[in-house]
Amino acid sequence: MGFKKASGNKKVNGIDLYYEFYAHPSSKNTIVLIHGFLSSSFSYRRLIPLLKNDFNVFSIDFPPFGKSGKSLRYTYSYDNIAQTIIHFIKMMGIDKIIIMGHSMGGQISLNIAYKQPTLVEKVILLCSSAYLQRAKRSLIFVSYFPFFYLYIKYWLGKSGVKQNLKNVIYDHTLIDHEMISGYLTPFQQNDIFRALTRMIRHREGDLSSEKLQTIETPCLLIWGEDDKIVPLNVGEKLNKELPNSQIVIFKETGHLLPEERPLDVFRHVLKFVNETN
């Protein structure tokens, strides 16, 4: 097939938004990938080669992660990040999407579906964050200290990238130099830690149960039974509260589903899309 790849940054909502686009020669379905906290489009590197055989694929680095901007004037709230992605999709001339979000990207995907139900045809949630409250007032207060960003840098670097990957992956043999380098690279400049400081202040709590129950969009939830970051019981609760959802659970699988089980994820996505078309 004659796939075409494009990538770059677009100024959207006052910030540079990095994206990768894989154009399918004939598919009418467009899938938008939203990564998780402390991640980037890199986390979908094993899933994109499968998805692009059946979909037009956009993979977005949401601010301040990956290659997107880290402006100290941008508001890093779920609402604003979701609105930025909505603006981008419309700028690209797309009026219908399937959206896939991993971890925090799942919460952003739910925000997009809540805000723009006519835009989102289907939602795929991979170990999505849910039911988290806003940061404590004490943490928000100390975030205004001039060098607080250095504390974030120390805290994130304390255990190291390899140990952090061990926490999110069930099968540690998957962790290699390429993976470690891919997740480390975006955090080698101080700008990211200053932006993360702003995210602590701006991030609202996750969507309430009342709001979740109004999302009628078909949702596929995929979870790792051994997820230590967003435990399975969160997914089961989310499945009960979303009116039109189903859940798939992978055994011996952790949090980083796009890296751990790309082929299985792809098969379930394809089945879900074809069932609900």
Score class of each variant (00 low, 15 high):
K10G: 09
V12H: 07
N13V: 03
G14L: 06
P25S: 00
S26A: 13
S26P: 06
K28H: 13
T30D: 00
I31H: 09
L33Q: 01
L33P: 05
H35Q: 09
S39Q: 11
S41W: 08
F42M: 10
R45F: 06
F58E: 08
S59I: 09
D61R: 12
G66I: 04
K67L: 05
K67G: 03
S68D: 06
S68Q: 05
S68W: 04
T75R: 15
Y76L: 13
Y78C: 05
D79L: 08
I81T: 01
H87D: 15
K90F: 03
D95Y: 07
K96G: 04
G101D: 02
H102Q: 05
M104G: 05
G105K: 01
S109L: 00
S109M: 01
N111T: 00
K115D: 03
Q116L: 04
T118F: 10
V120Q: 00
E121P: 01
L126V: 09
Y131P: 03
L132P: 02
Q133N: 11
Q133H: 11
R134I: 08
K136L: 06
S138L: 15
L139P: 06
L139Y: 04
I140F: 03
S143M: 09
P146E: 06
F147R: 10
F148G: 05
L150P: 01
I152K: 07
G160E: 06
G160K: 11
V161D: 10
V161P: 09
V161C: 11
Q163H: 14
N164P: 11
K166Q: 14
I169Y: 15
I169D: 14
H177G: 14
H177R: 15
M179L: 15
L184H: 13
T185R: 15
Q189D: 13
T197R: 12
T197L: 05
I200Y: 13
E210D: 13
K211L: 12
K211Q: 13
L212F: 04
Q213K: 14
T214S: 01
E216S: 13
P218E: 03
L221I: 12
I222E: 12
W223H: 05
D227E: 03
P231M: 03
P231N: 08
K240I: 10
K240P: 02
N244F: 03
Q246D: 09
I249T: 11
I249D: 02
F250D: 01
E252L: 14
E252M: 14
T253M: 10
G254D: 09
K271T: 07
N274A: 10
E275T: 03
T276Y: 02
N277C: 12
